[in-house]
């Protein structure tokens, strides 16, 4: 296959970026999207052009490093996949593919397609944990957790922190990411203890980072490679309102 690529190139955070057009020759349908970029990069290196920088690591859809806006969709076409799990067989000979970095103020471009997602880490720092220090905890079976709760918590905990939800949201909102962590912990009895301060602190941190607001487009849910449900956002909103109305022990 031969494809035309329109790729965002930007030297560093300070410089202006622009789109460059490249041709990808000999694309094998079994390649992953990132492998296709590898091949393009080898080709660019051969021509003396700086290779395209992009984040990637595990290449099996779990580390959350890859972060490409492919043809206007976060992680490209197809539900429930990251860019590293997207295979070239979904494209056709001669297709034109636009590749852009995640776009959001809290995700500044570092170089080419690489963005800085440390804002996500700071949101977790604000309260995305249970304050259990090492040692001195009870036996694991001393805290029974109903299977439906454990399962639902796991659904939320599956988040890989890639930022596709933000990238896909028309408002660049991080609600799904935050809601997933808030819900994961709040659904478990050991996490209930800090649920109220946690939801306040994490939402405050999210707002401080400059993410947009949720206006319920549900694009996040559609883009999420782990198909995390947007009802966690409703869950978080409920938790947040309860906390605002009754912040103290009730």
């Amino acid at each position: 296959m031969k494809l035309k690529l329109r790729i965002w190139r930007q030297k560093n955070a300070q410089s202006q970026g622009r789109f460059e057009t490249y041709t990808a020759e000999n694309v094998n349908p079994h390649m992953s999207f990132l492998e296709m970029l590898d091949v393009v990069n080898e080709d660019l290196l051969g021509k003396g052009i700086d290779p395209i920088a992009f984040d990637h690591d595990c290449r099996e859809g779990i580390c959350g490093a890859c972060s490409l806006m492919i043809n206007g969709e976060a992680h490209g076409p197809g539900r429930g996949v990251t860019a590293c799990q997207l295979h070239m067989r979904v494209f056709k000979e001669g297709d034109e593919i636009t590749v852009e970095p995640w776009r959001a103020r809290p995700f500044p471009v570092v170089r080419d397609l690489v963005v800085d997602r440390s804002s996500f880490d700071r949101i977790i720092q604000a309260g995305g944990y249970i304050s259990a220090s090492t040692g001195g905890v009870p036996d694991a079976n001393a805290i029974p957790i109903g299977k439906p709760f454990a399962d639902k918590a796991m659904d939320a905990a599956a988040c890989i922190g890639c930022g596709a939800c933000v990238a896909a949201c028309p408002n660049a909102s991080a609600m799904l990411f935050v809601a997933a962590k808030v819900s994961h912990l709040a659904l478990l009895p050991q996490g209930r203890i800090e649920a109220k301060p946690r939801v306040s602190a994490m939402i405050q941190s999210m707002d401080n980072e400059g993410f947009g607001n949720c206006t319920n487009h549900f694009e996040c849910e559609a883009a999420c490679p782990k198909e995390i449900n947007a009802d966690f956002i409703a869950r978080m909103n409920r938790e947040y309102l309860q906390t605002k109305i009754c912040p103290e022990v009730s």
Partner: peptide
């Protein structure tokens, strides 16, 4: 380790009884 991870909120698989 299992005790520690459960206390941290690791959502291990559970039986219907609520036990691990």
């Amino acid at each position: 380790i299992i005790d520690q991870c459960v206390a941290q909120g690791v959502p291990f698989a559970r039986e219907y009884s609520g036990y691990l």
